[in-house]
C-alpha cells in the first residue's frame, strides 16, 4: 500500500517545513494565546462588572464572535484591517498589513471571546468572600483583581486555558485560506510543487497529531498537580 510512496520528499523539505512553516505556526499560536488571554480576561471582567452597559457590551462581543465561522472572521479581518489602520493613522489609502499581523489580530480578537468565557468561569469559581476580604483590607478593585482574584482564577483555569491553546494551535492551520506559509501551508506548497499530496498531508497529520497529543497529555498531568491548595 505504501509501495509507490516517496517519503524522500519529506527529507528534502523538512527544514522548510519546520523552520519556515512550524516556526510561523508556533509564533502565531504563542502570541495570539497571550494576547487572547489578556484581552479575554478584560472582557470577562467587563462581563462581571457592576458598571452599567459594560456587561452587555462584553456579552454581545463574545456571542458575536462565537456565532461566526473562523474562516469568515479570517477573511473579514484580512480585508478590514487595512481600512481600520488607514482610519486610525489617517492615511490616504488603506494601509498594507502583512499576513502575519493580520492573522495575529484575527486570532487574538477571535480567541479572546473563547478565553473570556474560561476566565469568567475562573473568576466565578473564586468564593465571594475572597473579594469581600480583599475589600475589607482596603484593596481597590484593581488591586483586589490583580493580587487576589485573578491569580487564583488563572491558576484554577490553567489546564483549560492550555487546552484552548491547543485548539488555537490547530485553528491556526486555517490561515491556509490566505495562502500563508504556516506549517500546513508549507506542506501544501511542497505537495503541489512535487505532486506528492499523499505523503505531505499524511506527514502533516502525523506531526499535528504528535504535537497535540503530547501537549494534551502534559496538560492532563498538570491538571492533576495544580489542584489548588484550599
Amino acid at each position: 500500500m505504501f509501495s509507490n510512496f516517496d517519503f524522500s520528499v519529506i527529507l528534502n523539505s523538512w527544514r522548510y517545513l519546520f523552520f519556515d512553516g512550524m516556526a510561523f505556526t508556533l509564533t502565531l499560536t504563542a502570541l495570539a494565546a497571550v494576547g487572547g488571554v489578556v484581552l479575554g480576561t478584560l472582557i470577562a471582567m467587563m462581563r462581571l462588572s457592576s458598571v452599567p452597559v459594560l456587561p452587555q457590551i462584553a456579552k454581545v462581543y463574545v456571542n458575536f464572535m462565537r456565532s461566526l465561522p473562523l474562516v469568515l472572521v479570517i477573511f473579514w479581518f484580512y480585508f478590514l484591517v487595512p481600512y481600520i489602520g488607514q482610519w486610525i493613522i489617517g492615511a490616504e489609502r488603506p494601509i498594507q498589513v502583512g499576513a502575519f499581523s493580520s492573522s495575529l489580530i484575527t486570532f487574538t480578537l477571535f480567541e479572546a471571546a473563547y478565553f473570556s468565557e474560561i476566565m469568567r468561569a475562573g473568576i466565578q469559581s473564586i468564593p465571594k468572600g475572597q473579594g469581600a476580604a480583599a475589600s475589607a483590607l482596603g484593596l481597590t478593585y484593581w488591586q483586589s483583581m490583580g493580587s487576589v482574584i485573578l491569580p487564583q482564577a488563572f491558576r484554577n483555569m490553567l489546564p483549560v486555558l492550555l487546552t484552548q491553546t491547543i485548539v488555537l494551535f490547530q485553528d491556526t492551520s486555517l490561515v491556509y485560506v490566505l495562502s500563508i506559509t504556516d506549517f500546513l501551508g508549507a506542506a501544501s506548497k511542497i505537495a503541489q510543487r512535487d505532486g506528492r499530496l499523499v505523503e505531505m498531508y499524511l506527514f502533516a497529520a502525523v506531526v499535528y497529531f504528535a504535537v497535540c497529543f503530547i501537549a494534551s497529555l502534559l496538560v492532563r498531568r498538570l491538571q492533576r498537580r495544580v489542584a489548588i491548595i484550599r
Binding site: 468572600g129 475572597q130 469581600a132 476580604a133 475589607a136 487564583q152 489548588i228
Partner: peptide, 14 residues
Amino acid sequence: RVGMVFQHFELFPH
C-alpha cells in the same frame, strides 16, 4: 482602618 474577620477566614489560598 476597619479590621474585619470573616466566618470562613478568607485567607488568600494562593
